[in-house]
Structures are given as structure tokens and as C-alpha cells.
């Protein structure tokens, strides 16, 4: 068979949709477990540790590139399929009934587009800030010592802190290089590494007095789109890969549960931050 057929044939396109889609389901699970750490009341440490791990670990790096490729492939393949499918019926019906298929299954392209727009804005709001923003704050804690409040930078070495106050920093001969590294200026020696405070950015984003409520509402709406997309997509992927057998009822049940639970848990986080977090 011609090599191109394995990319271009109608069935091959379905395989790729299914494989990238299922991989993205795995990504969603991982991402959710990471995000849920925002709910741990531990001075942001778990979440910021996770954020550091996600941006530096080499294995994660490979997985993240796979995720970017999957999203792009899933979207491009989806657009190509939708264009072909629209072309397959140049003249539509005057009357359609629609009772023989689910609403979600008929609107995968629309739902996918909503999710894609969400991903782009979501990455601009958090991913790009984490990776590129020079003014990204470092995590600090307030400690009360003998009636005096002190702001201290947290470092990756447990129990090692640096004063946040710039005068005190100078007195200690410290400076911050490469955005997160604490250096002793005189000795040119790295003394420790701080955490980028993604927790603070996230909380500020959803608690913003002007935009916080809108951001929360849009986030929840995007999760509704994700839920409906998964409701059809999860079980559909198995059918596309040729798996339709005695396990199918179980796959469908699991898919429905996945499509409800995962977006719901994602949505709870901004709701909690905006309305409940003090």
C-alpha cells in the first residue's frame, strides 16, 4: 500500500483522530492531578513544586512535545475531516429529524473549536507566563519572628530561605539570576533555586476583581464543551480503532464517567478559587 494512504485514507484519518484523542485523555488526567494541588492548603508548595517539575523534567519535556503535536494533529485532522464531510453533502435537506444521533456526536467540530480557542487562551494566560514572563514572581512566605514579620523566598532545598527584602538581600550579598537562581555575588556561587510562583499567578487570575468572574465563567463553559466532546469522543475512539466487542458496554460506561468527572473536577478549581478561597 502507498505510504500516503496511511495518512490520507478516510479510515487512517480516523485512527489518528482516535490515537491522538486517547493520548490527550491521558494528558487531561495528568494535568487534572497537577491542578488539584491548587486545592491543597500548604502555602502553594505542592503546586509550585509540580509546576517546576513539569517545566524541567526531561521525560515530561518529551511528553509535553507529544502533547503539543497531538493537539495540533487532532485539530488539523479534525479540520480536514470536517471540510471533507461538508463537501460530501453539497445540497442539504430541507427537513432533518436528528433523533437518530446524539447532539454531542453531531457537533464534535464546534466543540473541538471551542476547546482549541480555550487551549490557546489558557496557554497564553499560564503556560506562556510560566515559561517566558520575566516578571514572574518567586514564591515567598511570611514568617513572624519575635513580633517582626519577614518575607522569605522559598527554595528547592527544604528549610532554606532567603530574605525577600531587597536591602537585606544586598546585605547578604545575594542577587537573583536567570529569574530563579540565588547567587552569592562575591563568590559567584549558586546558593539555591527559587520556585516560580505559578500558584500566585493562578489565584490572582481567578480572583481578579475585574476579570476574575468572567474568567471563571468562561473556564466553566469551556469545561462543558470538553465534557460533551469527551462524551462522544472517548468511546468513539475505540470504535475507530476497531474495538467493538464484549468490552464495549464497559468502555462506554467508563467514557461517560470520564467525560463527566474530569471536566467537573477541572471546573471546581476556579470556582473554589473565585468564590471560596480567602
Amino acid at each position: 500500500m502507498a505510504k500516503s494512504a496511511f495518512l490520507k485514507s478516510s479510515i487512517a484519518k480516523k485512527y489518528w483522530m482516535a490515537l491522538t484523542g486517547l493520548f490527550l485523555c491521558l494528558f487531561l488526567t495528568g494535568h487534572l492531578l497537577g491542578n488539584l494541588q491548587l486545592l491543597i492548603p500548604d502555602n502553594a508548595l505542592h503546586f509550585n513544586q509540580y509546576a517546576l517539575f513539569m517545566t524541567t523534567n526531561p521525560a515530561v519535556k518529551i511528553l509535553s512535545y507529544l502533547t503539543y503535536i497531538s493537539i495540533l494533529f487532532h485539530a488539523i485532522d479534525g479540520i480536514l475531516l470536517t471540510i471533507q464531510n461538508k463537501k460530501a453533502r453539497p445540497v442539504g435537506y430541507a427537513k432533518t429529524d436528528g433523533s437518530s444521533s446524539s447532539m454531542a456526536s453531531r457537533n464534535m467540530a464546534v466543540l473541538g473549536t471551542i476547546i482549541l480557542v480555550f487551549i490557546v487562551t489558557h496557554m497564553a494566560n499560564f503556560w506562556a507566563v510560566m515559561h517566558f514572563d520575566k516578571k514572574m514572581p518567586l514564591q515567598s512566605v511570611t514568617i513572624e519572628n519575635m513580633g517582626q514579620k519577614m518575607e522569605l523566598y522559598v527554595t528547592t532545598d527544604t528549610g532554606k530561605f532567603f530574605p525577600k527584602d531587597s536591602i537585606q538581600m544586598m546585605q547578604n550579598g545575594l542577587e537573583i539570576r536567570n529569574r530563579t537562581e540565588f547567587y552569592n555575588k562575591q563568590a559567584n556561587l549558586k546558593m539555591g533555586e527559587g520556585y516560580k510562583d505559578l500558584y500566585k499567578i493562578t489565584i490572582a487570575f481567578f480572583k481578579d476583581p475585574k476579570m476574575g468572574l468572567i474568567a471563571t465563567i468562561l473556564y466553566v463553559l469551556a469545561m462543558f464543551a470538553l465534557s460533551f466532546h469527551l462524551l462522544h469522543g472517548f468511546q468513539s475512539a475505540f470504535q475507530s480503532l476497531g474495538i467493538n466487542n464484549k468490552f464495549t458496554p464497559a468502555i462506554k460506561k467508563f467514557g461517560t464517567a470520564f467525560a463527566i468527572i474530569v471536566p467537573l473536577l477541572f471546573a471546581i478549581i476556579p470556582i473554589y478559587i473565585h468564590f471560596l478561597l480567602k
Partner: peptide, 23 residues
């Protein structure tokens, strides 16, 4: 391989597993 190739050439759309056909 041949039947799917012919199917694609005829200009039919792609299955998105809506299940309407079965019903």
C-alpha cells in the same frame, strides 16, 4: 484496501461514529 480506496474516491464523507446509520 480496494473497497476503501474506491469509497474515498467516490467522495463519501468520513465516519464520526454518530451511530445514525445503524438506527
Amino acid at each position: 484496501l480496494n473497497m476503501v480506496r474506491q469509497m474515498d474516491e467516490e467522495g463519501f464523507g468520513n465516519c464520526t461514529n454518530t451511530g445514525a446509520c445503524e438506527i
